[in-house]
């Protein structure tokens, strides 16, 4: 009942399709990374899911129901849309209090989430005096208020300091481990790969990938090992017999394309060739992601 179902979802603004025939599921118990360049349709998809925008066609549901039909929305879904979604004239505590009142959530829970988000000490300050990182923490506190089974977080690490980034990463992992559905958007692969179990990639409003993080890494990165040996000549001929090529790298090291450390280690042992260092080397995940979205980036700088 905590899964998210997106079916043939389209949102057009005039001739421009911000979201274009999207279909995917987000399942509980894992962190799903929602990736794409700016303007790919991530935020629009989240707004459509919350019923804030009306889809041109298609549906976005939670456990088969529209968000608009949920009797207790704050207990089902917690959303962080953007850090500016609060009136600057209110205090952090008052902002959470009116939300709690709307969801019949006890006031004691307000103080709990303020504490959990690390902003209890500034709870009585007006939000306009908050830094981006503090607003982000307030948004996360608001999302946690109803102890929801589904969390939608749009670029939650935006403006957070390194300590805050580690905090939110661990929080998301813990929430997913408790069996909740966690959908977290980002435009950075490096950030997402550190926390997501599953990956949904958008480009220009279309679905580019819906895959587990492990599969994405396997499929998208070329295999390569880096090694040091005292006998490159024998290793070169041994490798050549199996169709691999030894290539010189900097600082007296060598690289071999298309093979894994395990395979090369066995080969060297069989041949009795001394290997002093041996490690798998992945082509950058960031590069793989950029390759995937290159044709779909809406805003690119001309080089």
């Amino acid at each position: 009942m905590n899964s998210i179902e997106i079916r043939e979802l389209t949102k057009a603004y005039g001739a421009h399709r911000a979201v274009d025939g999207l279909t995917f599921d987000v399942l509980p118990g894992r962190v799903t990374g929602f990736l794409g360049p700016n303007g790919a349709g991530k935020s629009t998809t989240m707004r459509l899911l919350l019923g804030l925008d009306r889809p041109t066609s298609g549906t976005a549901t939670l456990g088969g129901r529209s968000y608009l039909d949920l009797p207790d929305p704050l207990h089902r879904v917690g959303a962080l849309l953007d850090a500016q979604s609060a009136h600057g004239g209110r205090t952090a505590r008052d902002h959470l209090r009116f939300l709690a009142a709307a969801g019949s959530i006890p006031v004691r829970r307000v103080d709990e989430v303020l504490e959990q988000a690390g902003i209890a000490s500034v709870a009585k300050r007006r939000i306009k005096s908050f830094s981006l990182g503090m607003r982000q923490r307030l948004g996360i506190a608001a999302a946690l208020l109803g102890d929801p089974g589904v969390l939608l977080l749009d670029e939650p690490t935006n403006g957070l300091d390194p300590e805050g980034i580690i905090w939110i990463r661990e929080l998301m992992r813990r929430l997913a481990a408790e069996g909740r559905t966690v959908l977290v958007s980002s435009h950075l692969m490096s950030e997402t790969s550190a926390l997501a179990d599953h990956l949904i990639v958008l480009g220009n409003g279309r679905l580019l990938a819906d895959t587990s993080m492990a599969d994405f890494i396997d499929a998208r990165s070329t295999r390569r090992v880096r090694l040091r040996t005292s006998d490159p000549g024998r290793l070169r001929s041994a490798l050549a017999r199996d169709g691999f090529e030894l290539a010189a790298a900097e600082e007296g090291r060598w690289t071999v394309e298309g093979i894994q450390a395990e395979q090369l280690g066995k080969l060297a042992a069989r041949e009795g060739i001394p290997v002093l260092e041996l490690a798998d080397e992945r082509a950058s995940l960031e590069q793989a992601y950029l390759d995937l979205t290159a044709d779909h980036a809406q805003f690119t700088a001309t080089r």
Binding site: A79, D82, Q84, S85, A86, H95, A102, A142
Partner: peptide, 18 residues
């Protein structure tokens, strides 16, 4: 007007979707 300050309306409507 408080609802049209920044994205305050989105927060309000997420809490009361009707």
């Amino acid at each position: 007007a408080g609802e049209f300050h920044n994205g305050a309306l989105r927060t309000s409507l997420a809490a009361v979707p009707n």
